[in-house]
Design a protein around this nucleic acid. Structure first.
Lengths: 145, 145
DNA sequence: TATTGTTATACTCTATAACTATA
DNA sequence: TATAGTTATAGAGTATAACAATA
């Protein structure tokens, strides 16, 4: 009788093998997020908001969409960002129900700083050869297209 | 006089270009984590704990290390996992200060289910050609080594 | 004295439901 | 009626500091 495999089956397909390593890398990034937030002096969610906001003011509900969270969260989130002087609420003349979230000049400066931090290649990627980095970029471009 | 560039500099090096796309992909994964947690019927942090736990019981402090969080968090986390019957606390005879976190049989079943879900290639990776998947795996293997 | 886990505290994030003011 | 944002509520994650039991 054939021996029965008692452990979970190992990855088989190329997709499973690639995803397995990518998942492992993604799992290791929680430290990266914590460091990023600390460098900015913000909780992770506020840092997240800062990164997705642009110079164009957006309705509260749109920010919720960008952050994939419920609109009710955005009220408190924007409250805290406003307390730090990073954003301000603006009325919308055409529809008085809508409030726009706009980065202040202080908010834009910190957002720019965040983008600089985020642009720094992760050590794991920086350590790759230039050829691997180029190939990785090409594959990811195809993956995200 | 040369024209001054007023926008942020675009990515230059191969590392910056590769990391830029990888960062973009990672940012898109919050939906993935939410779906994963929902499929397991657990909050994300409890799902995280389940994934990092093995059949070998570990001290509370070791679980904190695995999850990169403060030991004080683990008390409540294990409380909630214990309420669901997924883990149990066990004494350590050799050092009565130490408590071991051990998966129950129910916990092991859900952990196995979690590993199956996690092993499914992400759609973005699944859509790549087999050649790209193979190359991606090789590059990630070098990156993570 | 040092360490493990717990508790107390404070802040933050998150979703659901009910509410308000507009439309 | 429907929508945008808020509030109330409840549960959960997070770090710091102080604490009890043990080493």
């Amino acid at each position: 009788m054939m021996q029965t495999v008692t452990t979970l089956a190992p990855p088989r397909t190329a997709a499973e093998r690639a995803w397995g390593l990518l998942f492992q890398f993604v799992m290791s990034l929680d430290v990266y997020w914590d460091e990023l937030s600390e460098e900015l002096g913000l909780p992770t969610s506020q840092a997240h908001a800062l990164i997705v906001l642009t110079d164009a003011p957006v309705p509260m509900s749109h920010l919720a969409g960008l952050m994939h969270c419920d609109a009710s969260n955005v009220t408190g989130l924007v409250d805290r960002l406003e307390q730090r002087g990073l954003v301000e609420r603006r009325p919308t003349p055409s529809d008085r129900r809508v409030k726009l979230v706009a980065l202040t000049s202080k908010g834009r400066r910190l957002r720019d700083q965040a983008l600089v931090l985020v642009a720094r290649p992760h050590p794991t990627i920086a350590a790759l050869s230039a050829a691997d980095q180029k190939t990785l970029h090409e594959i990811l471009r195809r993956a995200l297209s």
